[in-house]
């Protein structure tokens, strides 16, 4: 017998719904205001703050594009080159980070060695252990190893499994039945083959999700390139330079907003294309049994 669900909304959900509607309105309006204001004339922005632009000034985007440069030594790096560096930085780092977490997750969950407990415990402790202010030391070490200010240096630095995603992979591999790999083993498959052609396809969705999450965070990250990779400015770093450069062409607020919106477009497209994956189900399996 089907029980009809109650129609009325519980009080708690009513309050939460109201809160979330308010949140959506504020966020939506802020973005809307930002986009429309980026089309305002420089003088108009001062006296017509709230309304729509009286005359739509598209030149703001032209100025933003032309002045979107990062200084590298004596030369200027423009948007196209920054796009390349962004792709290399975000794509490369996201791939090595995901691959490292995945490899370690697999190794520590599918094989029974004492080292596994040590590794898992170490990650748990390293994640909560606040070793503050190691950045200067990191720079010194990078300089010693000739990795400072190189793209490969960044990839090496991000090939790291001290992350919550290591635990995500660990939990997922642990949950996969042994029968898959045993069946393959009887058919004569080796360890690498089992890992690459059987186990990886099974966790493909998680792999892509983690990759995309890493990708977005590296794409948006300007603080690491600002410290460690100044010769290869990414778009996010370019926006940082753009934001704090005081020139008559770039400092007006509508131009600033135009620059910000311009570089938001790639990430917006990525979000629209992979919305489901980016917001996919990821859990640590941290439930009480």
């Amino acid at each position: 017998m089907k029980v009809k669900k109650k129609k009325h909304l519980p009080l708690l959900f009513g309050v939460l719904l109201a809160g979330m509607i308010l949140y959506a309105l504020i966020l939506g309006y802020m973005l809307f205001w930002g986009v429309t204001s980026s089309f305002k004339g420089r003088l108009e922005f001062a006296d017509n703050i709230l309304g729509l632009p009286r005359a739509w000034v598209f030149e703001n985007y032209y100025y933003a594009l032309r002045n979107f440069v990062s200084p590298v030594g004596m030369r200027n790096v423009y948007l196209d080159e920054m796009l390349l560096y962004s792709l290399l930085y975000a794509g490369g780092c996201a791939f090595v980070s995901t691959a490292c977490c995945c490899m370690m997750g697999y190794a520590t969950s599918k094989f029974k060695y004492k080292l596994n407990t040590v590794i898992y415990g170490f990650v748990l402790i390293a994640m909560i252990l606040p070793l503050v202010g190691s950045l200067p030391s990191q720079i010194v070490v990078f300089r010693t190893l000739n990795l400072y200010d190189t793209m490969i240096g960044m990839w090496v630095a991000k090939f790291n499994f001290i992350s919550v995603y290591f635990m995500v992979f660990h939990a997922i591999f642990k949950g996969l039945p042994v029968s898959y790999s045993e069946a393959a083993k009887i058919d004569g498959a080796g360890n690498w083959r089992i890992f690459l052609s059987i186990m990886l396809p099974l966790v493909k969705v998680t792999f892509v999700t983690v990759f995309l999450l890493f990708f977005v965070s590296y794409w948006n990250d300007y603080s690491t390139p600002l410290l460690m990779m100044k010769s290869y400015p990414t778009i996010a770093l370019g926006l940082y330079y753009f934001r704090f450069r005081q020139t008559p062409d770039t400092s007006p607020r509508p131009v600033q907003l135009a620059g910000a919106i311009m570089v938001f477009i790639p990430i917006l497209l990525l979000f629209i294309a992979f919305r489901k994956k980016l917001m996919g189900n990821i859990s640590l399996g941290g439930l009480k049994e």
């Binding site: 977005v216 570089v263 979000f271 919305r275 917001m279």
Partner: peptide, 28 residues
């Protein structure tokens, strides 16, 4: 829908969010 809305600020690059927020708080 609200899951998406709440998620949006975390994918917008910090520099972009802060540029908009700064002018929103200071002008709007």
């Amino acid at each position: 829908f609200f899951k998406t809305v709440l998620f949006i600020p975390s994918i917008i690059p910090e520099m972009i969010m802060t540029t908009m927020f700064l002018y929103f708080a200071d002008s709007f």
